[in-house]
Write a protein that binds this DNA or RNA. Structure first.
Lengths: 207, 207
DNA sequence: GTCTATACTACGATAGAC
DNA sequence: GTCTATCGTAGTATAGAC
């Protein structure tokens, strides 16, 4: 119970303040326990940080099960069906990026991208890799003329469109003239991302 | 001279470690001076941080003059010409994101996006706003059927594609199987971004 | 398992000599 | 302008009581 409270608090603090910015004193205090509980349950600050990375990985796996399944199911799906599935996966990621629950995770991950630590390895091999494989499998069948490196580049730039919702959140809010992204702004951006993705994925083959 | 060295060092340290992670002791040491020089020249740690934001703003203005000019020149340019100019602007941003020089700036900005401080205000009104206006002016003429909010959403998602080069750098490197993004990977990603952007911008009107 | 108490290090700011 | 010296605070880790 103390362990769970500590993890929850740590996720919030590490997300908002980063590894250095967060303090074990404050995490323990906000969890209603003492600093030495962190040593007991997680071995120290770093162990707590890695436990957060593991927890984030599991939460994303739950929410992005569709993308992970896609890697296995892509070979047996038709082209039209795959396109729709892929657009749904991109929208799932966009929804996750928009949702308030993911704020701490997103900050955590964006920090790790700038200066990867052991936690990034947990995140990448724990969930990102499989999600990318799913997206790439779908793209490979939708656009069979593309080379493997092009498929990869396409998958990454598609993700970029949704990444902007978190990685440039402050700019998005300022550009749209709002303090926080609400339902309306979320719908506008998701719709635009869907339109863009459709144009990108069918641009070379349909007309 | 001491002032310049301090600014340069601070840019690197704040970029890599964030405001909390960086220490004035280390910045002074690496600049070959003493902590109290920071107080003398910048008033303190926060003043030094804001001076970094101002410096980044000026550097980006220099490198993205094309985007800033676009806002003024868009009305007098033809549709085909505007499309090419816009693709060039996007490529300029991509080049900046790929270039090693921008690593510290990018980290600095990405951090500010997660937890905006006064420094974000400097960055946004100092350069981001004008760049967005340029891109929106071009999109507005290329796709005259779009509403103003759609134009804005389109501008933001277009930027997302290049943002991925910095904000998800670690994932991009892992996905491409390299330790650092070299010439080859940069060319691949820039080419993909250009293809995507072209499909997005002409998707609704040409076929 | 969880607490208090403490050891040790590093932080930013400031005073005052030069 | 730049230095040294120092103050007060806050960081993590650890020892030992319960």
């Amino acid at each position: 119970m103390t362990q769970e409270r500590l993890l929850e608090t740590a996720l919030d603090q590490f997300g908002r303040l980063g590894f250095d910015g967060a303090s074990t004193r404050e995490i323990a205090r906000a969890s209603g326990t003492s600093m030495s509980s962190i040593t007991y349950h997680f071995g120290g600050k770093e162990g707590l940080y890695l436990a957060c990375a593991h927890h984030i990985t599991e939460q994303i796996r739950l929410r992005q099960a569709g993308a992970i399944r896609l890697a296995r199911e892509a070979p047996s799906l038709g082209r039209e069906e795959l396109l729709e599935r892929l657009l749904a996966v991109i929208d799932d990621v966009a929804l996750m990026m928009l949702h308030e629950d993911s704020a701490a995770w997103s900050c955590f991950i964006v920090r790790e991208q700038q200066q990867p630590t052991q936690a990034f390895e947990l995140l990448y091999s724990g969930v990102m890799e499989e999600m990318l494989e799913g997206v790439e499998a779908a793209i490979g069948r939708i656009r069979p003329e593309l080379a493997s490196r092009e498929i990869r580049a396409l998958a990454l730039t598609l993700f970029g469109q949704v990444l902007v919702l978190r990685a440039a959140r402050a700019t998005v809010c300022r550009a749209l003239g709002v303090a926080r992204l609400g339902e309306e702004e979320g719908a506008l951006l998701r719709s635009q991302i869907r339109t863009n993705s459709l144009a990108i994925l069918t641009g070379g083959t349909q007309s």
